[in-house]
């Protein structure tokens, strides 16, 4: 019933919460909210609330990149965040979310991983980005991607003591974050395109395309989801929307504002 109503509204370019089709919900960003993490952020998109914490540990480099640090993103869809989520190891959805968040950061070459080498071929910094939804009301990928890049941007690398052990009470140099990609997910239902879907809206979407865009407007990662195919015109349109909205979101963040028209 509710789904029919949502669809009916969308036909008239209207949404349940009164937003325009290409309008974000109110956005709030808080940095450094976890005292035990080396970097962290909380992002709210309307009623969706997510936390990302960054931990820095020693790791081994991959054989093909012996002088590069390692980035690892994981997500748990905690049962606390939604009645439909159940306990247990990360399933398809959690793994997809983690990998898509990871891809935006990795492919924008956001982190200068070569600065994270401690001993070439042996010891590097592993940067763990862990995503936890607190309340799921749709669009976890965009909220999580934003929380992840804000958390990384505010991450400080712990110092090493005389014996070479990690001293987490002394967080000093900032993590070298060179780029600030933003993920914009565009949803399609019928012939309408919307951004920042709520949980209820996600249930009626035919398909979604998540697109990570850098500050220069370059597309660095994409992920299509949903069971209905997209035409090339649809994809063109979605990319244009994502690039445009990423600029708007970037400005909102820079200006420290919460909403846009």
């Amino acid at each position: 019933m509710r789904a029919d109503y949502i669809l009916k509204l969308l036909e008239k370019d209207e949404r349940l919460d009164g937003r325009k089709l290409d309008q974000f919900r109110e956005i709030s960003i808080e940095k450094n909210i976890i005292a035990t993490a080396e970097g962290s952020a909380k992002v709210k998109l309307g009623k969706t609330e997510v936390i990302v914490g960054v931990k820095m540990n020693f790791g081994e480099p991959f054989p093909d990149t012996p002088d590069a640090g390692v980035l690892r993103t994981e997500a748990e869809l905690m049962p606390m965040a939604h009645p439909d989520f159940t306990s247990g190891p990360p399933g398809e959805d959690a793994t997809e979310i983690a990998r898509v968040i990871d891809r935006g950061i990795r492919e924008s070459e956001s982190i200068d991983v070569e600065k994270l080498c401690i001993t070439k071929g042996e010891k590097v910094w592993s940067v763990f980005v862990d995503f936890y939804p607190i309340n799921h009301d749709g669009n976890l990928i965009d909220a999580g991607s934003l929380a992840a890049i804000v958390a990384l941007k505010n991450t400080r690398i712990p110092e090493l003591d005389k014996e070479g052990k990690i001293d987490r009470e002394k967080l000093k140099n900032p993590l070298p974050v060179m780029h600030f990609p933003l993920m914009i997910t565009v949803g399609k239902v019928g012939n309408k395109m919307i951004i920042d879907p709520t949980f209820e809206e996600e249930q009626v979407l035919d398909s979604k395309l998540s697109i990570a865009v850098t500050e220069e407007g370059k597309v660095v990662a994409m992920q299509k989801s949903g069971s209905v195919g997209l035409t090339d015109d649809d994809v063109d349109n979605m990319i244009d929307i994502a690039v445009k909205k990423s600029k708007e979101l970037r400005k909102l963040i820079e200006d420290g504002k919460k909403t846009s028209k």
Binding site: I34, T36, G53, R168
Partner: peptide, 17 residues
């Protein structure tokens, strides 16, 4: 009842699960 520690709640990252 499920008690779970976030990976970043402790000094050395806790393994998930």
């Amino acid at each position: 009842f499920k008690y779970d520690m976030a990976t970043f709640s402790v000094d050395d990252r806790k393994r998930p699960g």
